[in-house]
């Protein structure tokens, strides 16, 4: 049973971790909490939903290619939406007080939710089941191929992201902007491009988390982003907001804690337990588990 709960927690954690990366990357570079990110997640799920329900069923040998296209297009769609949101609602407020873009983000979130509710549907939509799911028995534990797939894809994307940030020139530019906007600009970095890139990547990861969430739970709705959004944000804070490694591990930790709390203690209070752990971590390490001491900027 313990291993089964661990598998459930890791799958849930993979989705939280992908989702949390968007919060943490934006915070790292703009010091703002992008509350509209939960709606990017929802829109990503809907883009995947449309493509899955429009396209006919292909021969099984095309299935991997077909899903690859769906994932790439959902990532792109969600990422471009995030870039647009930044350009229209955060960029004009970049010089304003820190509260202004935050409130703008809440506005965007309410707007997108209601837009989908009014134009698509106010009801839950069943997610098309086109991915064949097999059940495996490993060490007496039942694991579905979808759980392995979600975990594998999340790890793969995180590795790619880490390589991108630590090895490429654009990644270096991102780190520079996160450290200091003005100095980065003096070094010839176009900070607008870098900020857009952060929103594109963060939004894309959020979008793919949405598609995975839809595939895993089998139903989506216009307000589906809210609760996982809060959890993913919690994961980002738990790991140390602004820290990419922290968001990844924070997501997994939160997923596992939730699964174990629901399995061994009480399913109705699993959120209480997860948030109590967050509070405890913040009491003893206000910067999160992996948060680093940041020298005060003067």
């Amino acid at each position: 049973m313990f291993i089964e709960q661990l598998v459930n927690g890791l799958t849930l954690g993979s989705i939280y971790a992908l989702f949390a990366l968007g919060y943490t990357m934006v915070y790292g570079i703009l010091l703002m909490i992008n509350f509209a990110h939960s709606e990017i997640f929802m829109v990503g799920a809907y883009i995947g939903f449309w493509m899955l329900s429009c396209l006919p069923i292909f021969a099984p040998q095309f299935l991997p290619a077909y899903f690859l296209i769906i994932f790439i297009l959902s990532m792109l769609g969600a990422g471009l939406l995030a870039v647009m949101v930044e350009r229209l609602s955060y960029k004009p407020l970049r010089k304003a007080c820190r509260l202004a873009p935050l409130i703008s983000a809440i506005g965007v979130s309410i707007f997108l939710q209601n837009l989908v509710m009014l134009t698509v549907s106010a009801q839950s939509q069943p997610y098309p089941e086109k991915l064949p799911i097999r059940q495996f028995h490993l060490f007496g534990v039942q694991i579905s191929s979808l759980q392995i797939f979600i975990f594998g894809l999340a790890i793969l994307l995180m590795i790619i992201l880490r390589i991108f940030i630590s090895r490429t020139k654009l990644g270096k530019a991102m780190r520079a902007v996160a450290e200091n906007h003005t100095v980065a600009q003096l070094m010839g970095i176009n900070i607008n491009t870098v900020i857009s890139l952060v929103f594109l990547i963060g939004g894309g990861l959020g979008g793919i988390a949405g598609v995975l969430n839809g595939l895993y739970y089998g139903s989506i709705k216009y307000n589906m982003g809210f609760l996982p959004g809060i959890k993913a944000f919690t994961a980002a804070v738990l790991g140390g907001i602004g820290n990419i490694k922290g968001a990844m591990l924070g997501g997994f930790i939160l997923g596992i804690v939730e699964a174990l709390a629901a399995g061994y203690i009480s399913s109705e209070n699993k959120d209480v337990i997860a948030f109590v752990i967050l509070i405890l971590v913040l009491l003893f390490r206000p910067t999160g588990i992996f948060g680093e001491e940041v020298t005060e900027k003067i």
Binding site: M1, E4, Q5, N8, G9, L12, N213, Y217, M224, L227, P228, E258, A259, L260, A261, A262, G263, Y264, S266, S267, E268, K270, D271
Partner: peptide, 17 residues
């Protein structure tokens, strides 16, 4: 005899138990 939260999507942990 267990309670769940409305709006939750993941009941796997409870169901495994």
């Amino acid at each position: 005899f267990d309670g769940i939260n409305i709006g939750d999507k993941d009941f796997r942990a409870l169901l495994v138990r």
